[in-house]
Structure formats: C-alpha cells, structure tokens
Write a protein that binds this DNA or RNA. Structure first.
Lengths: 332, 332
DNA sequence: TTGAAAGCGTTACCAT
DNA sequence: ATGGTAACGCTTTCAA
C-alpha cells in the first residue's frame, strides 16, 4: 500500500542508498540520476517515513508542549507562536493538555519522552517538585514558559511578573486610587504570586500598607473573577480599583461589578494581565499588562534549538507593558 | 545515555525478546521473571522508544490535526476535546496551524503523512480542490470538522449550520424584528454560506425578501465585525438586528454599534454563532447558536478510530442550539 | 518459558 | 558516482 524507498529503488533501477542520497539532494549522486529518481519518487507518491528516519538519526524533529489548557486565549496565543516558529525550523509540535493536574502533567512528560521528542516546552506548568525531577537530567532539553520557580530545572522564559504588577498598580495609584484590591490567581501559581508582590511593592512605595481584606483569592477564569469581585463588593468600604491576575478574571470582575450596579470605569477601575487578543473588545476595553506572547513562544523554541545544538543558554525574562485602555479612570 | 531494551536485557540476564514480553505484560513469561524485569527496567529508567515501536507495528498512535488558527476560541475548544479524547485512547496529537492558507494546509497534510500519523482531522479546512485530492486515497483516515463541502473526501462532522442560521433568525423575527442583517464569514467558508442560507430561509418563511444591502461581507475576527457593522450603520435605514457569522464577529459588531452611540440590545439586537466560553461574559451577554464543540471533537476522534478498525463510518451532523442571553430584545 | 532472528524503512559508512 | 550493509530499537514469528 505504502511505497517505500526500496520500491522507488526498484523502479529506478538503482540501489536504495542512491535513492536516499538523491532525495536528500546529496552532491554525491549524478545530477541526471537524481532528477530521474526524484521524478520517479514523485510519480509513485513516495513520502519518506519520518519514523524510520528518526530511528536512525535519533532526531524526531518534534517538540512536545505541555499546557494546562489551550482553552485560555493566553496559552493559545503562546502556543500559536510556538507552533509557527517550530514549523519554520521544520519541527512539529505534539500538544498535550494537563488540566493543571500534576499527575497528568507527569504522564504527559513521560509520553513525550517515549516519543523521543527533541525538546519539551512546559507552558505554565504546575512545576511541582515531582515534575521537576521527572524532567531533570533526562537529557531532553526542557524550557518552562512562565511560572518557573527558583528551584526550577532547565531553562525558563518569563515575563517580568513583578514589574508588571508594579506598573499596573502604579498606574492606578497615579490616577488617584488609594483603595486598590488584588484578585489573585490559582493558589499555587508562581506568576500570580509575583504579580501580587509587585502590587504590594507599589503600594508600599507609595506609603500605603497592603490591606489583607483587599487581597482575595481568585483563579484563572471569569467565574472566579466574578466570585472574587462579589466578595470585594461585600466589604464595608469597597475598593475603587482592582488589579486582576489575568484578563479573564478581569472580565468576570467587570461583569460582577456591573451586576452590582456599578459602572466600570466610572465607579470602579479594572486592570488585567496578559492582553489577550480580545481585551480591546471587552466593554469597556481592558487596561492590562501585555505579555509578549509571540516573543515568548519564539524564544522558547529558539532555546530548545540552541540546547540541541549544544550552545550555552540563559534564562530569559521579558518585559511586560502596560496598555491603558478604557477600564481605568480616576476615582470619582 | 538513553537506555534501550538491550541494556535492560543485559542487566536482567535475559534475552531482549523476553524483556519486550515482560514489559508488555505478556502471559508468555514467568510472572516471577516479569516482576523482576519490570523492576529492573523501572530502576534503570527505561522508557520504550515509541518510534522504534511504530516502525514495526506500523502504528504511531498519533492523530494529526490541521487547524486554521488555534487563536480562535471555538477552534481551541474543539481541539481541547480532540486532545482529551485522543489521550483516553492512548493517542497523542500533532497540531499544525495553517493560517487558512491552502498551501500551508497541503504542506501540513504532507508532513503528517510523512510522520505516518494514524489519522488526520481537518478542523474547518480550506477544503480547496487540491486539499481534497491531497488526502484522497492516501489510506490515512481523514475527518473534516465543519466546512466540508459536498464534494468532500473522507468523512465529516458538522454542526447543522443551516438550521442554526434559521433558528437564530427566527428568534429575531419572533421578537418582532423585520430589518435583520447578516454579517458573513470569510468568503470561501462553506459553514458561513450555510448559515446565511438559514438566515434567508427564515426570512422567506416569514414572507420577507432578503435584502442585499443587509448582507455584508465580514470575516472571522472582531475587527471584521466592526467594519461590517460600520457599513450597516451607514445605511439610510439601518437594521434593528444583526445575525453574525460567529461570536467574535458579533463582539466586534457590538463594539462598533456602541461607538456609533447605539445601545445593545435596546437599539440593536445581536446574535452570534459558536457559543465560545466567553460569550456569557460579553457585555451584554451574547445570544448565540451553540455548537457542540466537545461532542464534535469526540466524534471526530471516534470516527478516526473506527476507520482504523475497519468499521463502516457515517458522516455526522450535530444540532446547534440557540442560547438566548442579553444581546437580543424586541425592537424599540 | 525463553531465545534467536527476521524485519520495519531509513541513514551513513565503507567499498568499489 | 554508486552499491552493499550495518545499525537504529523495537515486535513478532519460529524454534528450542
């Protein structure tokens, strides 16, 4: 059914090593024969088997990507960048969702290693201790995007979460807000913790004490943002501005505020984080800290490739950028 | 560096065929030896090479997915479902973005075939003639999700676009709207054409003639929706309701309407298509036709598996479901 | 119950 | 410039 290199060899009346060379455009074959072989191969619909090739070259040209969920636009956009830059280098991507469950994450890594992927990119991994040791010293180049902890293995690409949180909060302060809340991310996410640190630092730098009641537990989805917002609005003296773990949470927070009869930004300013593609289309358009998603994906792939080439590679912290849109205003 | 089956055999003092059997839990090996071998293998950190295995079994346990972009939540959600159900069957997914460019789509299919994937899922493919012949008769089970044309090869899973468009429009009609516009999708997308047919049928069934000026060219992103909406609002007598190709376009349309000083839904009703996860959080929450995304992904994988098993498989049209939320109201 | 060996479809080395 | 052959790491007969 499927035509192999031997079939082509037979049809072309040459040895199959010659076919291999001809198809690889090796100079070690007479141009004339090469042409003919390529012609015949094309005619027969021959497609070289990447799996056989991988077995002998010990390179699969596959990058494994583990992500909590692709259903969050931020991740989708990062993965899009990964896939595109990988493709440019003739690499394909195996995508696995872990649903933020450490076991599934481990299982995914294991599977990827069985598949002998050339490199692994962990997008915002759970990074539990176990994960780390699961990849450590396996020889498979591994890069973590966001959420790497200090004890991380391997290499990491991150946005500067702390500065991002700081800038976001400073923006609200400069508008005149004083009661500024923070809606946190999933409990164990390191990136959120850093954003919160930035938030607190900004307050302190301004001579304000972070107030525990204004820091509420959130999550990474709009539903969590709504809940958190309701909690904040139940406060005797509620905040005039809220900085959220990410754009989706901010979206939920805005909805809850509206449902409580508040108008954003007139009665309440909101700042998000990520700058997903839809952020400008929220109502109001969301002020947020943009992550360089495209760059992050590119950089991660590039690091894998460099690691594969045996180059020295350094961790990489990319700057975020505050984008002021319609969801923030001075307090009224 | 990497430990192979032979290393394990050596360490366990058995032939490597025995190791292979032991690891596969074959009954043809003494339980005792099996235990020991498994223990040793685990200790040595042995991970069987999926590529070597694929070469001999002629099965990669990989499903290739080609999608225009993962950056659209609808696709992301479908792919999420694909990945999850594939994983349950021990399949992995290679993801490739085609950017809606036919050549890239072809190239992607070619690469997937070189990789000897067990099946291919085309999510909303460009489905140009060339694409079709590229997959036709290759023996690789192929399923198209949405947007398959009549002349399609292989098998397809679709939502009932026509009924969806019909329901959406009927809903607006029943609210009392008479001037209802349609913002179309990318020109060559078959699914959009069907939705438009549904729209027109609904109008006709109501005794109304579809009016060309109310059917405008759109796209699949908010930006396109904005532009289309601006065009509609420039009309001497603009519509009181708009049915949009998808939710993202609807989002853009809402924004344009607001910028023109209109209030949705008071001055203008909007209906989308897809029901992406964020639709309930738009402002106002979007009335839309829900596609059974999870089911579509599951079904596609299931079809591939059945095809692989040699079963007979039939095309599958799933019903959409109108979800009325806050973006539609009777005309004022 | 175990071992030996063929074979999967390539690449790469060594001859010729 | 071309052919022969080993090797990649497995699974699967066929023998013992």
């Amino acid at each position: 059914m499927i035509v192999s290199i031997k079939d082509v060899a037979k049809a072309a009346n040459v040895s199959y090593s010659t076919v291999s060379r001809a198809l690889a455009n090796s100079p070690r074959v007479k141009p004339e024969t090469r042409q003919q072989i390529q012609h015949i191969a094309a005619e027969m619909g021959y497609l070289p088997s990447a799996v056989a090739r991988s077995l002998v070259t010990r390179r699969t040209h596959i990058i494994g990507v583990v992500v909590t969920t692709i259903t969050d636009l931020f991740f989708a956009e990062v993965i899009h960048a990964i896939e595109e830059t990988a493709l440019k280098q003739k690499y394909n991507v195996i995508l696995t969702n872990s649903g933020r469950e450490p076991e599934r994450e481990l299982e995914a890594i294991r599977t990827l290693r069985e598949r002998r992927v050339d490199g692994i990119i962990l997008v915002s991994a759970g990074t539990s201790k176990e994960d780390l040791s699961a990849v450590k010293g396996t020889g498979t180049p591994t890069v973590i995007i966001n959420n790497a902890r200090r004890e991380h293995i391997g290499y990491s690409v991150e946005v500067d979460n702390l500065s991002g949180g700081l800038e976001a909060t400073a923006h609200l302060l400069s508008l005149g807000h004083r009661r500024i809340a923070y809606i946190a991310g999933p409990t164990r996410e390191w990136d959120g913790i850093e954003r919160q640190s930035g938030y607190e630092q900004a307050l302190r730098a301004f001579g304000l004490q972070p107030e525990p009641s204004l820091i509420v537990r959130g999550g990474d989805r709009p539903e969590a943002g709504m809940q958190a917002m309701e909690q904040l609005l139940a406060l005797p003296c509620h905040p005039t501005a809220v900085f959220c773990y990410n754009d989706l949470v901010a979206l939920g927070a805005m909805r809850a505020a509206r449902m409580a009869g508040l108008q954003v930004p007139r009665d309440l300013s909101i700042v998000g984080f990520d700058d997903i593609d839809l952020a400008p289309f929220f109502e109001p358009a969301l002020t947020t800290v943009a992550q360089p998603k495209r760059q992050m994906g590119e950089k991660a792939v590039q690091m894998i490739l460099e690691l594969l080439a045996g180059d020295r590679v350094e961790d990489c912290v990319l700057p975020g950028r505050l984008i002021v849109r319609g969801s923030t205003l001075p307090p009224s």
